[in-house]
């Protein structure tokens, strides 16, 4: 017998079950998973966009708002200026056609390298309850852009700010059917409190997360 059979057999023996799993047990587990019932959760007495902004700020993200997507480059330019950051950025394909040049930003559309300082991404959706961005990996949405640069700028669609993680998963199920290789929930800049429990931003990931909410959709 190999390790797998030994472990499974030990579990069944200890729970006084027959040596072989019967089809009914398997069906019961699969039926439960397929039904994925809702669990209790905190009441949501807030407006999702307002709540998202509040929670994101608490997590040390910064938040800006524009009416339409074509105003995003200028807004991002103002942010980079105010923070005295590099005006060279790497960006997801979805935003390649925006007029970055007019905003004075040099954009490279590709996955991020170690030396990139600013990364511009979209999101799959955002979660109001905790001020969180949900990123799905894919050919057009390389994970490294939100990870390697010191500054991560996320452009998000106000209409895709959902209440909680439950709605975020439901959106993946309905739009993608299966999970992509990586789902990353990002809640503010990277941090550590390992030395003397003193919170320090920018441990391994970005030092700054700046979120631009587009009110009228992408």
């Amino acid at each position: 017998m190999n390790a797998r059979e030994n472990i499974l057999a030990r579990i069944r023996a200890r729970q006084a079950k027959s040596a072989l799993t019967d089809a009914g047990e398997r069906e019961a587990v699969r039926a439960h998973i397929a039904a994925h019932p809702q669990n209790p959760r905190p009441a949501a007495t807030w407006d999702p966009v307002v709540r998202f902004r509040e929670e994101a700020l608490k997590l040390a993200s910064t938040v800006d708002e524009v009416e339409a997507l074509d105003a995003a480059p200028a807004a991002i330019s103002r942010y980079l200026d105010a923070q005295r950051l590099s005006r060279e950025a790497v960006c997801w394909e979805a935003f390649a056609t925006l007029d970055w040049r007019a905003a004075g930003i040099v954009i490279a559309v590709r996955a991020a390298h170690e030396s990139d300082l600013v990364g511009v991404t979209g999101t799959f959706c955002a979660i109001a309850e905790t001020g969180t961005l949900m990123m799905l990996s894919g050919p057009q949405t390389p994970s490294a852009v939100s990870l390697l640069p010191e500054t991560h700028i996320a452009i998000i669609d106000a209409s895709r700010i959902v209440r909680g993680m439950e709605e975020a998963w439901e959106l993946v199920r309905s739009e993608r059917r299966v999970l992509p290789r990586a789902v990353n929930f990002i809640s503010g800049p990277s941090r550590t409190a390992d030395i003397e429990q003193t919170v320090t931003l920018g441990a391994h990931g970005p030092y700054r997360v700046h979120i631009v909410i587009v009110k009228n959709g992408l």
């Binding site: 929670e55 608490k58 997590l59 590709r110 996955a111 905790t130 001020g131 969180t132 990996s137 894919g138 050919p139 390389p142 994970s143 490294a144 299966v178 999970l179 992509p180 290789r181 990586a182 789902v183 990353n184 929930f185 990002i186 809640s187 503010g188 800049p189 990277s190 941090r191 990931g205």
Partner: peptide, 19 residues
Amino acid sequence: SISNYISVTTGVKGEREHD
């Protein structure tokens, strides 16, 4: 209220994926 990163990984890199 939530940790900075929750990473859910499923399977391997797709054919046209960069990372």
